[in-house]
Write a protein that binds this DNA or RNA. Structure first.
Lengths: 244, 244
DNA sequence: GGAGCCCTTTGATCCACGTCAATACGATTT
DNA sequence: AAATCGTATTGACGTGGATCAAAGGGCTCC
């Protein structure tokens, strides 16, 4: 027997239970019944066009966002105009956690391509995670993962040389594409050299030169934003074989 | 009428309700009854001698720690020996959040001086925060604050010059000492030039030279680890007046 | 309270990355 | 298919901070 569901509902409602990203996202570790409860609180989806803001620094914090399609960057801007990209986010990753601390967002989230997010009203998430232990724990893990990730970036910015930073970046991207079922060795970067540079604490020329160098050495094949990793162990060696 | 409490209990039990750090720490925003519940789960205190580890990278994660006295640094170490200080923590701040994500700590926490922490078993904290909404929210704020702080460090490492980094560091220390009721302008640094350098992505010689430069310019008076800030606006100007 | 050692300062030199500049490429629009 | 504009590459040169080196200075631990 089939249950009859109006088409409109299917279109309007977000359904974590149907989402192929649930293993990466908030529903991870929840049983089907709990996922249904989560489904109910995920109010709506929101489409964000390329280059548009999902939220801005200073905006009142109301919800966190799970990326359903597309990708984003987050950045912080100083009064004098300097900016720093603090991260690139892919599908299944959560945006907006910075806003909890002061009830206002402290960075900008900008779509790198036409994207779609699930809006998760934060008050309701806290409410449900008081009832659903596995949801509470998964949410805590996601926040903690963000902290660990940031420590990795600090290591990168604080103690690595340009080529090491780029190698670490490429290996990280590769790993995240893999986790999403894409090729580990061939992918399309959504961000510019300037944005990569900002993230890695380098100028865009330095990023470009490092790419060229990797290409010369047969580590990767670079064609603009299209990357093919030819020698993963070689990239990894670059990271650890640092002459002390 | 006075209630009679055995002296031993007073000594053994931690008491958030009695702690003058409660406005900075987990109890913030809780009503007295809720603080009592928190008191019950704070199992024990632990004394850590200078230079000793509170936990090490790889250790199984069991608890988070609130600093009751003293101060700590956290660092990450790469296989090739390079290390990066990811933060300095003072009284009332919480350590160990990195461990939630994988059930294992991902950094080292080392006491900068003889210190004492309150051990907060994490499972029980999650349990209680399912019952006490204000505790849940305060915990989320603390995690979020850590993320925002890390973004600030990324900005510092990614887009500031040496003297700007040190100025930002000093202003940050000043502000945190102030929040703890100490002088905003005169304090004692617990960490070495090398540790400051690691945190700021600089070599210790560069840190030392920047201190000397600040002294020449009358911004601060430096005597080893004893710092007197003479011109706070001057330091702030250094941060924002960056020639683009 | 003295010995030893770690920490800090300062100078001289080097080099990785930044800066400036010119050109080339590619996606989008018309 | 040409025009336009943002993006990327590459070269030449400059510089901020790293590195190497050598004194001092002040804790810490007997």
């Amino acid at each position: 027997m089939k249950s009859v569901i109006p088409v409109t509902t299917l279109e309007i409602k977000t359904a974590c239970s149907q989402c192929n990203l649930r293993e990466l996202c908030l529903p991870f570790g929840l049983d089907p019944n709990e996922v249904d409860q989560l489904d109910e609180l995920v109010g709506s989806r929101r489409k964000i066009k390329r280059q548009q803001h999902l939220y801005r620094s200073g905006d009142t914090f109301e919800a966190i966002y799970a990326i359903r399609a597309g990708s984003f960057k987050t950045d912080v801007i100083l009064e004098d105009g300097r900016d720093q990209v603090t991260g690139f986010q892919m599908t299944g990753e959560v945006l907006g956690l910075d806003g909890i601390s002061t009830e206002h967002h402290s960075c900008n989230a900008i779509a790198l391509e036409d994207s779609e997010v699930c809006v998760i009203p934060f008050g309701r998430l806290e409410e449900l995670s008081r009832q659903v232990e596995s949801l509470q724990h998964q949410f805590h893990k996601i926040m903690s993962r963000e902290i660990v990730r940031d420590h990795g970036v600090m290591m990168l910015l604080g103690s690595m040389r340009a080529e090491e930073r780029l190698a670490a970046f490429l290996l990280n991207m590769s790993q995240r594409f893999t986790a999403r079922g894409f090729s580990p060795s061939e992918f399309h970067l959504r961000m510019t050299r300037d944005e990569i540079g900002s993230y890695l604490g380098l100028k865009l020329e330095t990023v470009s030169r490092a790419f060229s160098r990797f290409q010369e050495e047969g580590l990767v094949a670079v064609q603009q934003k299209h990357i093919r990793i030819l020698d993963t162990p070689g990239l990894k060696r670059l990271l650890n074989h640092h002459a002390v």
